Amino acid sequence: MRTPLAALSIALLTVSTAAPAQADTRYFSYNATDRITQALTKGITLQVRRGLFGAVAIERLFSTTARGSADLARGGPDAARRILPEDARGADLYEVQQVGDGRGLARALCPGADQVWLAASRIRAPRPLTLNAVGRWADGTHRHCVTLTYEWRGEWQTAPASPFADAPGA
């Protein structure tokens, strides 16, 4: 009776100690593929966290061509998911945190919305990416705002540097 319990304990200990070693942060960069996406974001870099079993979650979005970034929090209401286009309903939802540059991103994607979520297609290198922006207005209604499409650009080891960082006179 002790043997199965001991084996289970060892297995759980091994998995729990391996989890931090396997989870890592990556930076995936994408270029806009259509006019609407180019007008709103041009290119983006996603800070993603890959978990123990390969699941990827977005933590932060950086503008690739300009100054700015936004924190994203995983999760969102079912009402936001229900109004997504049919092919995006299984996507993961991320709330755009409206602090700092996140407020500007939310306003650009869904002008007038109180809250904004991004529904992200499955994130895998080197696959294209689709983001659907959904907003909630003061009256409680949720609306689909825009679909953004990107092509894979590359993977980075560190966060992108702002073109304005450490610039003389900045």
Rank of each mutant, 00 (worst) to 15 (best):
R2V: 11
L5A: 13
A7S: 04
L12N: 09
T14S: 14
T17L: 13
A23M: 12
D24S: 14
F28Y: 11
S29P: 03
Y30S: 04
Y30L: 03
N31F: 02
N31K: 09
A32R: 00
L40D: 08
K42P: 01
K42L: 09
G43Q: 00
G43S: 00
L46D: 05
Q47N: 04
Q47F: 00
V48W: 10
R50D: 04
F53A: 12
G54D: 10
A57W: 03
E59S: 10
R60P: 04
R60N: 11
L61T: 09
S63G: 01
T65H: 14
T65D: 14
A66Q: 10
S69Q: 02
L72F: 00
P77D: 05
A80V: 01
A80H: 01
R81Q: 03
R82A: 13
D87N: 15
A91C: 07
E95M: 09
Q97I: 15
V99G: 10
G100C: 11
D101K: 09
D101H: 13
G102E: 13
G104C: 03
A106L: 12
R107I: 05
C110M: 10
C110Q: 10
C110R: 12
C110A: 15
A113S: 12
Q115Y: 12
Q115F: 09
R124T: 01
R127F: 07
P128I: 07
N132H: 15
W137F: 15
W137Q: 02
G140P: 07
G140W: 05
T141P: 02
H144F: 11
T147L: 04
T147F: 03
L148E: 14
Y150F: 13
E151N: 10
R153V: 02
W156Y: 07
W156Q: 13
Q157H: 10
T158P: 02
F164Y: 15
A165D: 15
